[in-house]
Design a binder for these strands. Structure first.
Length: 952
DNA sequence: CGGGATGAGCTTTTT
DNA sequence: GCTCATCCCG
């Protein structure tokens, strides 16, 4: 895309006023937003600091920044402090600068300082929350009744986050501004939902959906004796509707005690977090909102002349409100696509975009209730629709719309006309229109998918477009998208059996993989010789359940397994044990690799015992902690990812697998005893009562009725499929196993039975070995990268005018040249890199993740980063880091960075000589660097941490 | 055809 | 714990 199309140009030109941009999939949104930004800041009286550009991920922010630099008069350096960031990071910045007294605005006697940390790890926060709840419940016997109804205290943290995302905050003795309103619910809004759901169906011959749902009223429930009988709630036999009075009856309930419980937990947890010197992501937004709301001068000071929000369909209610406070004028532009809103579980409110105008009015009214905070005109609101799609063929674009109107179950109905009315159809701009849209089905879905992929690769019927030309597809052109990680993992292991190159992209639950489970089993055997280990090992060895039982009872373990046990017992390190287990079972894939690296990295940080490792793996399994996995650039392999992870990406050929019937577990509040739903307010689903002589937990009949009134529906599920389909550029294949779901049945595509016939690919190119999993960092203060050791001021004078984007480009060239070889240099830096690489003789590795554990002041610290290039020869290993910088002022600073990698490499290759060099791409010179010792590094880190704390 | 009982199966992930 | 599909009955 070189020149904007007309609609894109409209958006670029429309700098003033409120704009809502419907930017469908593949319509060049980033391109347009970055051009618009460039035009805004290129105006004489506008500086980058006047323009807020919000994205939803840090990656997106980085990409935006880089693309903006390429398009405007500002360089990377000038834009490095520009507010192009996520809401969370903006809030963090504001709090660090102005938030010192923000807690006092909620009646909390504490301060936010430079040492207040953002707790990023959910599991760590849960642990702290549990500790908080233990203390809280001890201190507040008056809330005992509520705690007895709550099984899992952590659900209260979920409730707090949910309330925070809606802008409901506690003050010392009540609720911030009009927050309490939300907790009481809104009867009128509720009754509308109730009435809608209570309409008889089939022209009056069939009971309403609500009455039908209440069919099981009272089954397996224990209500207080004053609860109405089923007949009273549903209407008698033959009735078609729930009596209208039930709405009021169910809604009205005394909830002062409940509100006060939630208030106290919420408020005291805020205070607890601050006393422990941390904030979670929700609290960043909470305190920023409070600060901007209360401090009118600060708001004026911070507010931006232009506000642009990307991916607006992913924003939450509080973020919408924050955006209003942050806008100094009505130059507000939100860009998004309601059809791609799939993150409600992260509090995204699709209504922010679908009901933009009414929400705008409502939120502005609320904010202006007691003081005019938003003083700009909220009209006119101009809509702009980007309709030219640069990704997919017209056939795919048209087809994808079906997903949005397809019922997901026999009981599900879609108002097709209303949905179609809302869809802005896209028009394809691709050069070729050669799409195949197919569907396959077989019980052995994994094999069927692989068979299909083998049929596609190299097949002229599935040509893909590259540089306006058609060519036969390769493995790398195919992506398998699934809803669940599990399916992806299973598919991957089947592909591995056949040697078909396939790589997973996204988060995997590393510790729940087979290699991890087996390692855990053997460690348990070595440590405890207990049943829990043996059972797994025996089952893996092919024993039936009965046989396993017998062996366990008689403790007559098979000789070969006993022998293997003594082999393991003789090994000195846990790393050695892991290695031996994996080789015994033939686990040589990426999972085993990473587990090994993980084990070894934890090991080298401390003296890890087998018991420690058992607990380490157990915790990993329990928490389901995920590790990001990605294939190396340039690898020709099929990509497997979840649809969520694929959002924003594109693939020539998409296989949408696992289109099977699914019933999802209870959605929304899960089984939390205390829930919050906007129109209904705060509800307790179970209550503790001992009015009747003995303690008992009762179900709440009101809550049971109310819950039926809030159908979650399948809209987001439909949007998920829409996202999946619109990833495809040229071809789309659906696949199902035993139970194709209604989507597949209702889509206008023939589902063909496909008899699996996977050929052994046995390719040495199999990507499992090349798969990279980011090595998890062990406990301890993390967040160090070698860059944190370097001093910024050293670099200020050495701008060679080309910026970071240039370096990235050269870097990418190097990576592609090493991996693919067949790349032509396009500038001098790349030519220097090319001839340098040509001059190297050994094995080359690019982008190696390196992670160095150290002990600083008795605490474990890990520095991790990426080595640009590793050059391996039989007797020597060299680390090379590319720098564009001509000035050389910074060589000493670079030395710190290189030293980190040096020590990692020295550990990886204990028998070889290790050296570290900087390669200056501008003039093609190489400079060898003397590494610092580990103790020097420790000192540097200690110093840096010291600076951190003294800076408060 | 509608209503009721019964049994099976069970996410996604960013800050 | 919740929903869907399925079966059986009226």
């Amino acid at each position: 895309m070189t020149a904007p199309n007309d609609r894109q140009q409209d958006l670029i030109d429309s700098k003033a006023g409120i704009h809502v941009v419907d930017a469908g999939a593949g319509t060049g949104k980033t391109f347009t937003v970055t051009r618009r930004y460039a035009e805004i800041v290129d105006q004489d009286d506008v500086e980058p600091e006047d323009v807020l550009l919000v994205t939803f991920t840090n990656n997106a922010a980085t990409e935006m920044r880089e693309r903006i630099v390429a398009n405007c008069d500002y360089g990377m350096r000038e834009l490095s402090d520009a507010p192009i960031q996520t809401f969370h990071s903006l809030c963090h910045d504001i709090l660090m600068e102005h938030g010192f007294e923000a807690p006092t605005l909620l009646g909390i006697d504490d301060r936010i300082t430079g040492s207040t940390r953002v707790l990023e790890d959910e599991n760590v926060e849960r642990e702290r929350f549990r500790e908080f709840v233990r203390r809280f419940s001890d201190d507040h016997p008056e809330h005992d009744d509520f705690f007895r109804a709550v099984d899992e205290p952590v659900e209260l943290l979920g409730l707090i986050n949910q309330l925070a995302a809606k802008g409901v905050f506690p003050t010392a003795d009540g609720w911030y501004r009009n927050g309490e309103r939300h907790l009481d619910g809104d009867f009128e809004a509720f009754r509308e939902i109730f009435d809608e759901l209570n309409q008889p169906r089939n022209g009056g011959s069939k009971q309403s959906e609500l009455r039908s749902k209440l069919g099981g009223y009272g089954n397996d429930k224990c209500y207080l004796p004053d609860a109405p009988e089923e007949d009273e709630v549903r209407g008698g036999w033959g009735e078609k509707q729930v009596p209208a009075t039930v709405a009021r009856l169910a809604f009205d309930e005394e909830r002062e005690a409940l509100k006060s419980f939630v208030h106290d937990v919420y408020h005291e947890y805020l205070a607890f977090a601050l006393s422990r010197n941390y904030l979670n992501f929700s609290f960043l937004q909470l305190f920023t909102f409070v600060l901007l709301c209360d401090d009118h001068r600060l708001r004026d000071d911070v507010a931006f002349e232009y506000v642009m929000i990307d991916e607006f369909q992913d924003s939450s209610e509080i973020q919408f409100k924050l955006a209003l406070l942050l806008a100094d004028t009505n130059n507000v532009c939100v860009v998004g696509d309601w059809k791609q809103s799939i993150y409600s579980f992260q509090y995204a409110a699709v209504e922010n975009i679908t009901e933009f105008e009414s929400r705008l009015d409502r939120f502005v009214d609320e904010l202006n209730e007691d003081h005019e905070r938003v003083s700009w005109a909220t009209r006119p609101v101009t809509g702009i629709e980007l309709v030219e799609n640069y990704r997919s063929t017209q056939a795919i674009l048209d087809f994808s719309e079906h997903s949005l109107v397809t019922p997901a179950a026999s009981t599900d109905d879609v108002d097709e006309a209303a949905v179609r009315d809302r869809i802005v159809s896209l028009s394809s701009n691709t050069a070729h229109e050669n799409s195949r849209i197919e569907a396959i089905r077989h019980e052995d879905e994994h094999e069927a998918v692989l068979t299909k992929i083998q049929e596609i690769v190299g097949n002229d019927a599935y040509q893909v477009e590259e540089d306006d030309e058609l060519r036969p597809p390769e493995y790398g052109d195919v992506a398998v998208l699934t809803r669940t990680r599990d399916f992806g993992r299973e598919l991957l292991s089947v592909a591995d059996e056949y040697g078909l190159p396939m790589a997973y992209e996204g988060g995997i639950e590393l510790f729940r993989s087979d290699p991890a489970k087996l390692l855990l089993a053997w460690l348990r055997i070595l440590e405890f010789d207990g049943e829990r280990g043996w059972a797994v090992v025996l089952e893996e060895a092919g024993y039936t359940l009965d046989e396993v039982k017998h062996v366990l009872e008689s403790e007559a373990y098979p000789d070969n397994l006993r022998a293997f046990k003594s082999v393991l017992a003789s090994l000195e390190t846990v790393g050695g044990v892991a290695q031996r287990v994996f080789s015994q079972y033939g686990y040589d894939g990426a999972y085993a690799d990473v587990l090994l690296t993980t084990v070894q990295s934890v090991h080298s940080a401390t003296t890890l015992t087998r018991g420690d490792l058992v607990r380490f793996i157990e915790r990993g399994i329990e928490e389901g902690s995920t590790h990001d996995v990605h294939a190396s650039a340039g690898t020709n392999s099929v990509t497997v990812q979840t649809i969520h992870a694929a959002k924003g990406l594109e693939h020539p050929i998409v296989v949408l697998a696992n289109m099977n019937a699914h019933r999802f577990p209870p959605s929304g509040g899960n089984s939390a005893a205390i829930t919050f739903d906007d129109p209904i307010g705060l509800r307790q689903r179970k209550r503790y009562d001992d009015d009747h002589g003995h303690p008992h937990i009762y179900d709440s009949w009101r809550s049971d009725v109310l819950r039926k009134c809030l159908p979650r529906g399948y809209d987001e599920e439909r949007r998920l499929l829409y996202v999946a389909m619109t990833r495809a550029e040229s071809h789309l294949v659906f696949s199902a196993g035993e139970n194709p779901n209604t989507f597949l049945e209702d889509l206008p595509v023939d589902v063909k039975e496909l008899e699996p016939d996977v050929q052994d690919a046995d390719s040495s190119e199999t990507t499992q070995a090349r798969l990279q999993i980011a090595v998890p960092t062990p406990d301890g203060p993390v967040g160090h990268s070698p860059h944190t050791l370097m001093r910024d001021d050293v670099f200020e004078d050495v701008d060679d005018g080309r910026g970071t984007a240039f370096g990235t480009q050269t870097h990418e060239f190097a990576e592609r040249y090493v991996l693919e070889g067949d790349v032509d240099p396009s500038n001098d830096d790349e030519r220097h890199v090319k001839s340098f690489i040509d001059s190297l003789d050994g094995e080359l590795r690019v982008e190696e993740d390196a992670s160095l554990p150290l002990t600083v002041d008795g605490e474990r610290v890990t520095i991790s980063g990426i080595v640009d290039l590793v050059h391996i020869r039989p007797d020597a290993v060299e680390i090379i880091d590319f720098k564009t910088d001509l000035g050389r002022h910074a060589e000493d600073e670079y030395r710190k960075q290189l030293s980190v990698y040096y020590h990692v490499l020295a550990e990886w290759f204990p028998d070889r000589e290790v050296t570290a060099s900087i390669f200056y791409t501008a003039d093609g010179t190489r400079v060898e660097v003397d590494p610092l010792t580990e103790s020097d590094l420790v000192e540097l880190i200690a110093e840096e941490q010291g600076l951190d704390t003294s800076a408060q």
